[in-house]
Amino acid sequence: MDLFDGELGGRDDQGLDTGGGWSWCGVITIGIFILLAVLISWIFGLVGRIF
Score class of each variant (00 low, 15 high):
residue 1 M to A: 14
residue 1 M to N: 11
residue 1 M to W: 06
residue 2 D to H: 11
residue 2 D to R: 13
residue 2 D to E: 15
residue 3 L to H: 08
residue 4 F to G: 11
residue 4 F to C: 12
residue 5 D to E: 15
residue 5 D to L: 08
residue 5 D to A: 15
residue 5 D to K: 08
residue 6 G to Y: 03
residue 6 G to V: 03
residue 7 E to M: 12
residue 8 L to Y: 08
residue 8 L to E: 12
residue 8 L to T: 11
residue 9 G to S: 04
residue 9 G to R: 07
residue 9 G to V: 04
residue 10 G to P: 02
residue 10 G to F: 04
residue 11 R to S: 08
residue 11 R to V: 08
residue 11 R to A: 04
residue 11 R to E: 08
residue 12 D to T: 09
residue 12 D to V: 07
residue 12 D to F: 06
residue 13 D to P: 06
residue 13 D to S: 11
residue 13 D to H: 13
residue 13 D to G: 07
residue 14 Q to K: 13
residue 14 Q to V: 15
residue 15 G to L: 11
residue 15 G to S: 12
residue 15 G to K: 14
residue 15 G to F: 10
residue 16 L to P: 12
residue 17 D to F: 15
residue 17 D to P: 13
residue 18 T to A: 10
residue 18 T to Q: 11
residue 18 T to Y: 10
residue 19 G to M: 06
residue 19 G to K: 10
residue 20 G to Q: 13
residue 21 G to E: 02
residue 21 G to W: 00
residue 22 W to Y: 12
residue 22 W to M: 12
residue 22 W to I: 09
residue 22 W to T: 11
residue 23 S to V: 03
residue 24 W to K: 12
residue 24 W to I: 11
residue 24 W to Y: 14
residue 24 W to L: 14
residue 25 C to A: 15
residue 25 C to Q: 15
residue 25 C to W: 07
residue 25 C to N: 14
residue 26 G to F: 01
residue 26 G to I: 00
residue 26 G to L: 02
residue 26 G to N: 09
residue 27 V to R: 08
residue 28 I to A: 10
residue 28 I to Q: 05
residue 29 T to Y: 00
residue 30 I to N: 01
residue 30 I to K: 01
residue 30 I to V: 04
residue 30 I to Q: 02
residue 31 G to V: 00
residue 32 I to F: 02
residue 33 F to C: 06
residue 33 F to P: 00
residue 33 F to D: 00
residue 34 I to Y: 00
residue 35 L to P: 00
residue 36 L to N: 01
residue 36 L to T: 01
residue 37 A to Y: 00
residue 37 A to R: 01
residue 37 A to E: 00
residue 38 V to E: 03
residue 39 L to P: 00
residue 39 L to G: 07
residue 39 L to A: 12
residue 39 L to I: 05
residue 39 L to V: 05
residue 39 L to M: 09
residue 40 I to G: 02
residue 40 I to P: 00
residue 40 I to K: 01
residue 41 S to E: 02
residue 41 S to T: 10
residue 41 S to A: 13
residue 42 W to I: 10
residue 43 I to W: 02
residue 44 F to N: 09
residue 44 F to H: 08
residue 44 F to D: 07
residue 45 G to R: 08
residue 45 G to A: 06
residue 46 L to M: 14
residue 46 L to W: 13
residue 46 L to Y: 10
residue 47 V to Y: 02
residue 48 G to I: 04
residue 48 G to C: 08
residue 48 G to Q: 05
residue 50 I to A: 10
residue 50 I to T: 04
residue 50 I to H: 06
residue 50 I to D: 03
residue 50 I to F: 04
residue 51 F to N: 08
